[in-house]
Design a protein around this nucleic acid. Structure first.
Length: 272
DNA sequence: TTGTGTTTTATTGCCTCC
DNA sequence: GGAGGCAATAAAACACAA
């Protein structure tokens, strides 16, 4: 303990005085409270002399912390309501009226202010929480609405895409004679052309009146045709390499194509 | 009766003001 | 530097369930 304040420690079993730092109110050599064992546990002191009645204190509850009576608390509460700070004069007056030490009154006010502050914090917390809950509820409903709208939007765009596709399909059917977008190379066109012919009615038909396969040694007409086609490419390339290519007979492709058309009756083989 | 949680009274140390 | 306020804390008193 440091010098500066003089305290009575009610928790001590001896009625000791001690000096401490802080509030300097002298608390006397004894607890100033008395005890009423029944309802209020202790009666009011009616006179200031009773406050320091050592015998009374020792008989009642030596070395014990005592609670204020309900009457004392009631008066303190009323005083606190009017003003929660305690001026020295008011403190002295209250202490006198209640039969308490001024320091006890000061401590009571101090603790009461602390309790009031806690209550205030609780109230503020409750207010903030309720407004937070309200905002959260609004937020949730907005999120739900947003999700609903998103779903609606997705289903609408899906429907639109599907209807567009079916419209395009319809348009494509009506334009069945339209040229294909990609024209295959002439040699492939030839192949396709012949295949089409072979696959007429789903079966290969040999025209009895038509020309018969002459060169049995050849694998097939198409292979020859195709190798010819590749050779023709090689030829083109070589010409280009030479730099002496000539346009005598027009383009190579037109030659090949016309040849294919003219050679149509060369020979047939059965594709299996 | 006892263990446990809450309330009340009081102490301590620090800070601000005059 | 003294007076007084405040936050943190101790400890007694009290309430209450098991």
């Amino acid at each position: 303990m440091e010098s500066g304040r003089i305290y009575f420690d009610p928790s001590c079993h001896s009625n000791m005085l001690f000096i401490g730092k802080g509030d300097s109110a002298f608390r006397g050599g004894k607890s100033v409270l008395n005890m009423e064992e029944n309802s209020n546990r202790r009666p009011f002191f009616s006179t200031s002399e009773e406050l320091y009645d050592e015998e009374y204190y020792d008989e009642q509850l030596p070395g014990k912390k005592r609670r204020l009576t309900s009457e004392q608390v009631h008066l303190l509460e009323k005083s606190f309501e009017t003003e929660n700070k305690l001026e020295p004069d008011r403190k002295t007056q209250l202490a006198k009226n209640l039969g308490l030490q001024p320091r006890q009154v000061a401590i009571w006010f101090q603790n009461r202010r602390a309790r009031w502050k806690n209550k205030q914090l609780e109230r503020n917390y409750d207010q903030l929480k309720s407004s937070y809950d309200s905002l959260l509820s609004n937020y949730d409903s907005i999120v739900k609405e947003n999700d609903k709208l998103k779903t609606e939007l997705i289903s609408l765009s899906t429907e639109k895409v599907q209807s567009k596709e079916s419209a395009e399909e319809t348009a494509a059917c009506t334009k069945s004679e339209a040229p294909p977008e990609e024209v295959p190379p002439p040699c492939l066109q030839l192949t396709i052309k012949v295949e089409d012919r072979l696959s007429t009615d789903g079966s290969a038909v040999i025209d009895d009146n038509g020309p018969q396969l002459i060169d049995s040694g050849a694998d097939s007409y198409f292979q020859n045709e195709y190798s010819g086609c590749v050779a023709a490419f090689d030829s083109v390339n070589s010409e280009e390499d030479d730099g002496t290519g000539s346009d005598d007979n027009g383009s190579y492709f037109s030659n090949v194509f016309s040849a294919a058309v003219q050679q149509e009756p060369i020979g047939w083989s059965i594709w299996s």
